[in-house]
Design a binder for these strands. Structure first.
Lengths: 205, 205
DNA sequence: CTTGACACTGACTATATAGTCAGTAATAAT
DNA sequence: ATTATTACTGACTATATAGTCAGTGTCAAG
C-alpha cells in the first residue's frame, strides 16, 4: 500500500525542515541539524530518511559534501510550494518570426524574496472596469511616485484597497472602476503603497 | 574614492560565483570551491574577499558553518538579479474592507525554477487588441488542454507566436487581435505549448 | 511465522571545511 | 614618506560534518 508518493509524518517532517532551513538560513541543514530537529541521537536515523526521500526523487543528496542537500522539483510539489516565474522567454505576437535559436532566455524572475514586488488578491468587483475581477491576482510594485490614472494599492490606517488614482485639478481621489461604487477621498492618513504592474489569472480581454 | 558600493572585478567574481554555485547546486560553495574558482592557493585570500563583501552588506557569512554563505538583498541587486513575486498578499477592490490582521500572506511565488510557468516577451503589435503590446511580458503556463478564446503560445517547427485560439465549427485557427493581420491556420506540425495566464508591465486599460 | 519496510541507538572513523598565523607585494591615498 | 587597501602565499590546526558498522524493536503483509 505504500505508494512512492505518500510520505509518512516523519519523512514529511524531514523534507519540510530541509525546506525551511534553506529558506531561513540560505543553505541546507547538516546531519546534526536534522538530528536535533528529529530529536534522534544517531546519524543513521537521519541518513535513512534522506535515502528514502532521495529514492522518492524528492531531494538530491551529494555524498561527501557538507550540507549537500537539494530539494528537487517533485519535492517542492509535495511540499505544496507554488512555483512561479522562472526564466524569461521571449517572442511572440508578430507572425511566426523568431526561431528557437533567437530565443534569449533572460532571467527575469529567479525570484528572490523581496518586498518590492508582491502579489495581491483582488476581492470584490469594484475594479471590474479595469479588468480586475474578484479572485484575480495582481502584481504590485512598491513605489514612491504615482501618476494620474495608475491603479494603486492604498492603505487607510490598517485597511487596504486597490483603486485608480485620479488627479483632477490638483485634487486627488481613489476611483473604483465600477459605477456602483463612489470615489474615495484621499485622507491625510491614506498611504499609497504601490502600483499594479501586472496581473495573473482571470479573464483576459 | 573607494565607494562602498563599487566592486572590483575580483570581488564581483566572488559574488557571482557564490550566486551561480547556489543556483546550480542548491547550496553555497566551500572555501575550497572559491579557491579553485579564483585560482588562488590560500584560504586567506578567499576569506579576505568574503570579509569585504560582508562589510559591504552584500553577503552574510556564518562563522564555523560549512558553506555558511548567504547572498543578501543588496547582493542580489548588485548582481542585477531581478527580483520578483514574493509572498502573496490579498485584499482589495472592494471599499476599504480588510484589516492588516486579516491579510493572509500566502506563498505564491517563492519562486523555484520550473518549466511549467515562464515569461515571454511580446514582440510586435499583432495582439494589441487583447492588450498585449510590444515589449510587454506575459506569463505563460504550459498546458495540454486549450479552450476556445484562450490566448496561446504556439510553435510551428521552431518559430513561435502568441495568438488567440479560435475554434469555429470544429475548425481551429490562430487569430491575431489586430485587423492588420490574417488568421493563421493550425498546421499538423503546429504545437500549442501553453496559455497566457498573466501579464507584467505595459499599459493597463 | 517469516519477511521486509520503517524507525531508530551508540560508538566509532574519515575527511571535508573553516580558520589561523605570519608574512609579501603592488598600488593608491594622505 | 608613510599609511591603508587590495590581493595574495604557505604551512599549519581545529572542528564541523559526513559516513560506517552492528545492532534493536515495531508493525503490517504474504
Amino acid at each position: 500500500m505504500s505508494s512512492l508518493n505518500v510520505l509518512t509524518k516523519r519523512q514529511e517532517q524531514v523534507l519540510k525542515f530541509i525546506y525551511t532551513s534553506i529558506k531561513s538560513s540560505g543553505y541546507p541543514p547538516t546531519l546534526a541539524d536534522l538530528r536535533e530537529e528529529l530529536d534522534v541521537s544517531s546519524n543513521q536515523a537521519v541518513l535513512d530518511f534522506l535515502k528514502i526521500l532521495e529514492n522518492k526523487k524528492l531531494i538530491k543528496k551529494e555524498e561527501g559534501a557538507a550540507r549537500g542537500l537539494k530539494i528537487l522539483k517533485k519535492g517542492f510539489e509535495v511540499l505544496g510550494v507554488k512555483t512561479l516565474i522562472p526564466s524569461l522567454g521571449i517572442v511572440a505576437a508578430g507572425p511566426f518570426k523568431y526561431s528557437m535559436e533567437d530565443l534569449e532566455w533572460k532571467e527575469f524572475g529567479d525570484a528572490k524574496i523581496t518586498d518590492d514586488i508582491f502579489l495581491a488578491k483582488i476581492s470584490g468587483d469594484s475594479m471590474i472596469g479595469a479588468g480586475l475581477a474578484d479572485g484575480d491576482h495582481v502584481i504590485i510594485q512598491k513605489s514612491q511616485e504615482f501618476r494620474n490614472g495608475e491603479i494603486v494599492l492604498a492603505r487607510d490606517n490598517n485597511e487596504m484597497t486597490i483603486k485608480t488614482l485620479v488627479s483632477d485639478n490638483g485634487r486627488s481621489y481613489l476611483k473604483p472602476e465600477n459605477p456602483k461604487y463612489k470615489n474615495i477621498p484621499i485622507y491625510p492618513e491614506t498611504r499609497l503603497i504601490g502600483k499594479v504592474i501586472g496581473k495573473i489569472g482571470g479573464k483576459r480581454k
